[in-house]
Structure formats: structure tokens, C-alpha cells
Design a protein around this nucleic acid. Structure first.
Lengths: 119, 119
DNA sequence: TCTAATACTTACAAATTAGTAAGTATTGCA
DNA sequence: TGCAATACTTACTAATTTGTAAGTATTAGA
């Protein structure tokens, strides 16, 4: 069993949306794929400093199962696998935009309070 | 130590926003306070079926520390404590609105796929 | 003095999520 | 035959988050 438990039942929309986004690296994967269009496994790993291969693949699989990302395998040597957002995944990214903007404001606030850390 | 670790440094806005919202009941607390304006501890507990008192107070304290909610104590017998959103908390709720709408769509999708469960 | 009605606290256990490190799979080419 | 270069897998451990259940604090009023 690789995927985490949940996927409903949900008691409201936020609940249902948070379920697919919660996971230490998921929103960053979304961001990375949104910025680059298409990324290979190794590129994603390098783009997310600190992520372990285990968590990266686990998150990718869950997001694929949730219909957010598309996985394409090229039968070459060495093997190549490309990940990209589906239309559904892009719509999630759009829905996250205001939250991201709010977070950016929060970072400014925190930076203003404690100029050395928390940025 | 009651509060959870994080609160920065953050690598992007989503990251910074997710940090204050992640926690099993936080988005529901936001929703509940947004709908009712003001709620007592016991009202919140009853409004969030399944929440333990420990987690409820822990989340409330963290959200207060994050400036999202306001806590007002009335020195009466029996004691009364009222919670409400701050302006900052209301702005977070606004930022969450598109995500909530996305989640509502997702619930519909899931309901269409598996009419009996996952709603 | 005792009870009642809130709003917490605390110690401990269980569940969930993430990390580490080593191993597997594939296959063209020297 | 053996290596190289990716993309995973797996077993085990550690950290974090949540739950349970019982206890504390306050004070008006019987």
C-alpha cells in the first residue's frame, strides 16, 4: 500500500481540496510542474531540495491517482519518465493562486516582525 | 510545548499559507467561525463532530498565535470564552474560497464516479 | 460546604507521515 | 559479460500528529 488512506468522505469543499494537496511536497510539485510544463523524475528531485526519492514517488503516484498529473514513460535506455499537469491539475493550481498570494503577504509580515528569520 | 514546530522559513507563498491551515480541523474552524461570527468553545466542539477537546484547544491556540482568531474571556460563572476571526483570519478565508469551490467540484466528480461512497 | 457548569490541562498511547539506506529493473554498448 | 544511467522499491526507523481518558480551575448559589 503506497497511497495514504483518505479520499473521502468529505464534509465540505475545503476538506476535499486539502486532501489532495496535503503532503509535505505536493504543493511544491504542483508549482514545479506548473512552471516547467514537463519534468523528469530526476529533475523534480533536484528541484525540490531535501525530498527523498521515496516521498517523491509516493506523492507523484497519489497525485496521478487523483488525476492531477500525467505520467509518460519513454522506453529508452536509460529509461525516461516525464511528469506534467493534467487540465484538472492546472485548475487546482489556479484555485491555489489566491492562497499563494496570501502566503506571500504573510511572509512579508513575518519578515517585517523578525527581520533575521522566518522569511 | 503546545504549538507545532514550523512557522518558517518558507520557500514560497503556498508553503507559508499551508503552514497555518494544515492541521486536521483548522480549515473547519475557519469555516465555522466565518459562518457564525462568534462561537464559544463548547459550540465549536459541537460544531466539529469528532474533534477532541485537546486538538480543538491546540488548534485554537496556534491560530490565535498566528493572528487568525481572537479570543475573548468573560469572567462569569460558569466561564465563557468567545472565539472569532480577526480581519487577517477573514482574509485567509477569502483566499481559501476558490480552493473550496474546487473541492466542491471534486466532490461532485467523485460522487459521479462512485455514487454510493466518497461524497 | 457542596454542587454545577464551563473551559481547559495533562500524561500516555495510537496512528499517520516522512526519512534512510540499500536493493531491483531495464537495456544499449564496450 | 559487465557497466552505465535512470527510475523506482523495499524494509526499517524516526518524527510528527492525533486520540483517550482522567484531572484541574473558577465561583455563584443551594
Amino acid at each position: 500500500m503506497t497511497s495514504s488512506a483518505r479520499r473521502g468522505p468529505y464534509i465540505c469543499g475545503i476538506d476535499a481540496a486539502m486532501d489532495v494537496v496535503s503532503g509535505k511536497w505536493k504543493s511544491l510539485i504542483l508549482w514545479e510542474l506548473n512552471n516547467h510544463g514537463t519534468r523528469r523524475f530526476g529533475e523534480l528531485r533536484r528541484g525540490l531540495p531535501g525530498v527523498s526519492e521515496k516521498m517523491l514517488i509516493q506523492h507523484l503516484r497519489e497525485m496521478e491517482e487523483d488525476g492531477l498529473i500525467h505520467r509518460e514513460v519513454f522506453r529508452e535506455v536509460p529509461p525516461r519518465v516525464e511528469y506534467s499537469l493534467t487540465e484538472y491539475g492546472r485548475s487546482l493550481n489556479e484555485a491555489l493562486r489566491p492562497l499563494g498570494a496570501w502566503g506571500t503577504e504573510r511572509r512579508k509580515r513575518l519578515a517585517a516582525q523578525t527581520p533575521q528569520a522566518s522569511a
